Amino acid sequence: MGFKLLSKLLVYLTASIMAIASPLAFSVDSSGEYPTVSEIPVGEVRLYQIADGVWSHIATQSFDGAVYPSNGLIVRDGDELLLIDTAWGAKNTAALLAEIEKQIGLPVTRAVSTHFHDDRVGGVDVLRAAGVATYASPSTRRLAEVEGNEIPTHSLEGLSSSGDAVRFGPVELFYPGAAHSTDNLIVYVPSASVLYGGCAIYELSRTSAGNVADADLAEWPTSIERIQQHYPEAQFVIPGHGLPGGLDLLKHTTNVVKAHTNRSVVE
């Protein structure tokens, strides 16, 4: 069995187990497998329904001669939608809004960016022009300005110390501490036991640490421990890039980060 097929099978099995364990909360999309990078042309966006009122959005972007996937989250909030992270750029984010209108038909009224990198804030200006209120932590807003990236308009308070959590509509926002970046936030959907790890969490097929220019490698494993301790009931975990899975993604990420750190020390 090929690795790609095995990865998709694991996603399907995880979703099936969740649907059985929580039949009222989960209505997993039966329309197909989780979209992969090879299936999404740059400039297009796919939506994948995880649970009743919960979707991931998947886009792709060219970077350094390669094409990478990027995940975000959409959560229903009454007759409105909360968006977590842009679709990595203005063109993708405009396509995301169009796809949401086509498939869901509810307005996106608020959006949260989970850290300051372009795959999370690139497209904020498109959201703002569409009347979406954009939010991020003060740290993310400051770092985005320093980096020359787009800056969300509103500040999220109460997320300055490791372990801080605040309720934001249908989700809980959690600051686990520094990891992929010093400002990275985690998003949890309690009604569906869905954990969105953003770039602080890796997919299972990833074996290298990737972009760690703004990471705190020493603190990252401790931050992941905080996530595990705060959300032990999480059933569906979405990484910032690639295929979702279960809580095993947290341990896998820790292993990859520690291996990278150990290699760096040896070198």
Rank of each mutant, 00 (worst) to 15 (best):
S70Q: 00
E172W: 03
D125W: 08
S7D: 06
S70K: 00
V67T: 15
S113C: 05
F26H: 07
R76S: 13
S193Q: 12
L127R: 01
L9G: 11
T114N: 01
L173R: 03
G158N: 13
V28H: 15
A133L: 13
G32A: 10
V42S: 13
A179Q: 02
Q49A: 10
G53V: 07
L106C: 06
A59G: 15
N255V: 12
G169R: 05
G43S: 09
Y231E: 00
G210I: 02
G245Y: 05
G246E: 12
Y175H: 07
H230G: 12
D77T: 04
S30D: 14
V45N: 02
F174M: 14
T207V: 13
L13M: 14
D79S: 11
R263H: 12
V11G: 06
V194Q: 00
S162E: 14
G65P: 05
V257G: 01
P232V: 09
N92C: 01
K4N: 14
H57G: 00
H154D: 11
A215R: 04
I84P: 00
A234V: 07
N92H: 00
S208P: 07
E33H: 07
L185N: 03
L185H: 02
E203M: 03
A95V: 11
G105Q: 11
D214V: 05
G105T: 13
I104A: 00
Y48H: 12
P41V: 13
K102L: 12
T207Y: 11
L127T: 00
F116C: 03
Q228L: 11
I201L: 12
T36G: 08
D164F: 10
A259P: 11
Y231A: 01
S113Y: 02
P170C: 06
G105R: 10
S62L: 05
D125C: 03
Y68I: 15
S223A: 10
D64Q: 08
I50V: 11
R226P: 04
K8T: 11
V171K: 00
A133G: 10
S161F: 12
T222A: 12
S181A: 07
A259K: 09
V11P: 13
D64A: 12
C199K: 00
N211W: 07
G72F: 05
V166M: 12
K102H: 15
F116M: 06
L243F: 10
A130Q: 15
G198W: 05
S264W: 10
P244Q: 06
A98E: 14
L143T: 04
S38C: 06
R120I: 00
K91G: 13
S56E: 15
D119Q: 01
I104K: 00
A130P: 06
R263N: 15
K258E: 13
H260P: 12
D164A: 14
V266Q: 14
I58Q: 06
E99N: 14
S30A: 15
E145N: 14
S160V: 11
G169C: 05
P69Y: 15
T153P: 05
R110D: 06
P232G: 12
S205W: 09
S62Y: 03
I201Y: 02
S181T: 15
W88Q: 00
P232W: 08
P152E: 00
A259Q: 12
Q235S: 10
G197Q: 02
A209N: 14
A98Q: 13
F236W: 12
N149D: 08
P107L: 08
T86L: 01
A178D: 06
L24I: 15
S162K: 13
L24K: 10
P244S: 07
I224D: 00
